[in-house]
């Protein structure tokens, strides 16, 4: 299978320049990056992609087996690095994708020049035994799944044929309202569980590549102490707190976010 099609890979920017690979989180697709891409294109080769199950990825490639844990996604990232053969990349992972970067870099450090962990959380669920506060409980995640269900009512019946039936004409899907965040409810439910129920706290220490932890001010999903936790556990990491509020700095403050990514990736040489 061609990973470029499977993950709807887009390569843009300056050829031959250092590579920045942007990985979207749970909820939407590579369109999340569209406000930061123009600023990065000048000095970098920019790789964008959709996780399998999101956006214009090949939904037929999705299986509960492969994507029921972060491992499937991590494999995808490593496969893309290998297939694209652009040399070591600076992997920018937003939200759950930050942990995909952590796992991928631990597995194949040579594939990565550096990691930017944007609004990361290694574990969303509180762990009273260790005093770790991720901010959420298991019941909260069930509530999110209910929200997903309540807002996907129209999907499977009416929308699925439109979206699934036109893989060769993605522009048809593009024109639909909310299409950036729309996917099969079953896939969304599994991805939500993977996102919010994974615990990767123990994996942080294995990262050996230069890492920038970029957290937001006032992020309802990844609070400041979680960013500090990530920074403390990754040996070669720096922590910046962006002025951006909310969980999506690439949309809320694209210039600031692009500048932070560019400064870090540029300095890696």
């Amino acid at each position: 299978m061609d990973v470029r099609i499977r993950n709807h890979v887009t390569v843009t920017g300056r050829a031959g320049a250092p590579v920045v690979m942007l990985a979207h989180g749970f909820g939407c697709d590579q369109n999340m990056w569209r406000l930061v891409v123009p600023a990065l294109e000048r000095d970098f080769t920019v790789v964008l992609f959709d996780h399998v199950g999101s956006g214009n990825s090949q939904l037929s490639a999705w299986s509960r087996d492969r994507y029921g844990s972060l491992d499937g996604y991590v494999e995808d990232v490593l496969e893309m690095c290998r297939e694209l053969a652009l040399g070591p990349v600076t992997f920018v992972g937003h939200s759950v994708s930050a942990m995909m970067g952590v796992l991928a870099a631990a597995r194949e450090p040579d594939a990565f020049a550096g990691l930017v962990l944007l609004a990361p959380s290694p574990c969303f669920i509180d762990d009273p035994a260790t005093g770790y506060r991720g901010g959420f409980s298991g019941a909260d995640i069930d509530e999110l799944l209910e929200s997903l269900d309540a807002n996907y009512l129209g999907w499977s019946g009416a929308m699925a044929p439109v979206i699934m039936g036109n893989p060769e004409r993605p522009e048809l899907g593009e024109e639909l309202t909310n299409s950036f965040c729309r996917t099969d409810p079953e896939i969304a439910g599994v991805f939500a569980r993977v996102t919010f129920l994974s615990d990767n706290r123990a994996d942080l220490a294995a990262v050996r590549v230069p890492t920038l932890v970029a957290q937001c001010s006032n992020d309802a999903i990844a609070p400041p102490e979680v960013g500090a936790f990530v920074h403390a556990r990754i040996p070669e990491s720096r922590l910046v707190t962006l002025n951006a509020t909310g969980h999506c700095p690439q949309l809320a403050a694209p210039e600031e976010t692009a500048a932070a990514i560019a400064a870090f990736a540029g300095a890696l040489g």
Binding site: G25, F26, G27, C28, S95, F136, D140, I141, D142, E143, L144, L145, E146, S147, L148, N151, C181, F196, A220, I221, G246, H247, C248
Partner: peptide, 8 residues
Amino acid sequence: GGRLYHET
């Protein structure tokens, strides 16, 4: 749960 949906 709604907040998570709101943010994502």
